[in-house]
Amino acid sequence: MTASQTDNLKRPRMARSTAAIFGERIIELLIRLCGVSAIVFVFGIFLFVLREGAPLIGKLDWTKVLFSQEWYPTSKGNVRYGVGALIVGTLSVTGLAMLFAVPFGIGAAVFVSEFSTGKVKETLKIVIEMLAAIPSIVWGFIGLSVMNRLIQEYLPAPVGLNLLNGAILLALMSVPIIVSIGEDALKAVPDSYREAAMAMGATRWQTVYRVLFPAARNGLLAAALLGVGRAIGETMAVLMATGHAVNIPKSIFDPIRTLTATIAAELGETAVGSDHYRMLFLIGVLLFSITFVVNLLADLAVRGVRKQ
């Protein structure tokens, strides 16, 4: 070590101006605040929603609420808050949507990442991003007018606003997420794996399902789960397209009603602080819990905790 370097080390901290030290502290604090605030917001929102609903929790018979399909929140004589049909509605429309969206989205991700290059690839990515940017109310319109007519005309359905209509819209809305996360997952697979497989005579398709799918499994699972999260939370489009009837569907052509659509449609009509108002907030808590679990699973998938 040279003499001047030793001098440098010995030089007292005072050499930096107090303003500089102070400024650095403040910036550090701000950054920390930003990070912590995300947590605070999430918990804050959850607690707020819970607080609005809480007074009703003790007053309800929860087996009835969760499993009954009788949702009569405004009945004069006999108010019933059965959300069973709403839960089934949400799960069925999401499930059906994923039946379309996951194979299609993963397929598109494979095509974008492995089979297309140059202009085709860029164009596809832009189009898919545009798909993600369409507001859900516009999807609602499409469901209400275009899809509604198509379903009535070409399928044996008495009404066009039904489970199938909502599921197709939700599928279209979650595909962009599945494609972009799925593509990232495939892109992250080292190229040396592809070369190893191809040098052994694998075709491109064999490379995809024998090498890329196992290697990118966690990322692809996360893509699917984030698609599920997107679909469960969607409100406007399902409100407009599913027929909004409290009903346990027997076929994909039956109308349904979801948890989200119920809140959106009814919250404006209730008196603040009424039981109905509180019940809608409890439905919010339920939704929050479902999406929380789905996101948690997605997160675990990304980290590979579920590996093997």
Binding site: S192, A197, A199, M200, V211, P214
Partner: peptide
């Protein structure tokens, strides 16, 4: 014509499956 690469690149599957990979392909 088999090829061995600069960085070892076994596939992220089991030892067994790596060895039989070619047989499974063909």
């Amino acid at each position: 014509v088999g090829m061995v690469f600069q960085r070892p690149n076994p596939l992220p599957i089991s030892v067994y499956e790596n060895v039989v990979f070619g047989l499974r392909l063909h």
